[in-house]
């Protein structure tokens, strides 16, 4: 076999291989989540973040608008500090509420943003004023039991 046939076959092979890699990057994975360096950062403090993980989505009205960049603990207030990286195309008002939500009953947890009516927009490094912590199933159950228990003696006599 002469050299040009080798070159052609190998060229084709490498092209197919690279196409497969591009396919994996774009169609299988989501390369959009790759540009986490762009956009602006917000900080949200929660009493409890539940099972929120780094790289979890940040959604507004169900649309992904960013990712959780880091999760930490404030050593003095014992609050969980989540840094959110918001895509540059989305802007939120100053009085936006951040809450930790769960997709489906047992699905992954994400941060939900609910924009308010304030005309001033949040900028890079701002802190979200109002937050709502994760719902912890055990706490809900115990709350429910306590309230039941509180009701019962009133009826008893």
């Amino acid at each position: 076999m002469n050299r040009s046939r080798f070159d052609f076959a190998v060229g084709l092979f490498v092209a197919i291989g690279i196409l497969a890699m591009v396919f994996m990057a774009l169609k299988v994975g989501n390369l959009a989540s790759f540009d986490s360096g762009t956009g602006y950062a917000l900080e949200a403090r929660f009493d409890n973040i539940g099972g929120l993980k780094v790289r979890a989505p940040v959604k507004s009205a169900g649309v992904v608008v960013g990712r959780v960049e880091s999760v930490g603990l404030d050593g003095e207030t014992y609050e969980a500090v989540a840094r959110l990286r918001i895509y540059p195309t989305f802007r939120f008002s100053k009085d936006t509420i951040a809450s930790i939500l769960t997709s489906g009953l047992l699905g992954e947890q994400y941060v939900g943003l609910e924009s308010g009516g304030d005309p001033v927009y949040l900028a890079n490094g701002d802190r979200l004023g109002k937050t709502q912590s994760a719902m912890i199933l055990e706490k809900l159950i115990s709350q429910f039991l306590f309230s039941k228990a509180a009701e019962t003696p009133a009826k008893a006599p």
Partner: peptide, 14 residues
């Protein structure tokens, strides 16, 4: 496809 894209991370997985 969309579920796949939401869960497969380019850096961590691919």
């Amino acid at each position: 496809w969309s579920q796949m894209q939401a869960s497969v991370d380019v850096r961590i997985d691919v």
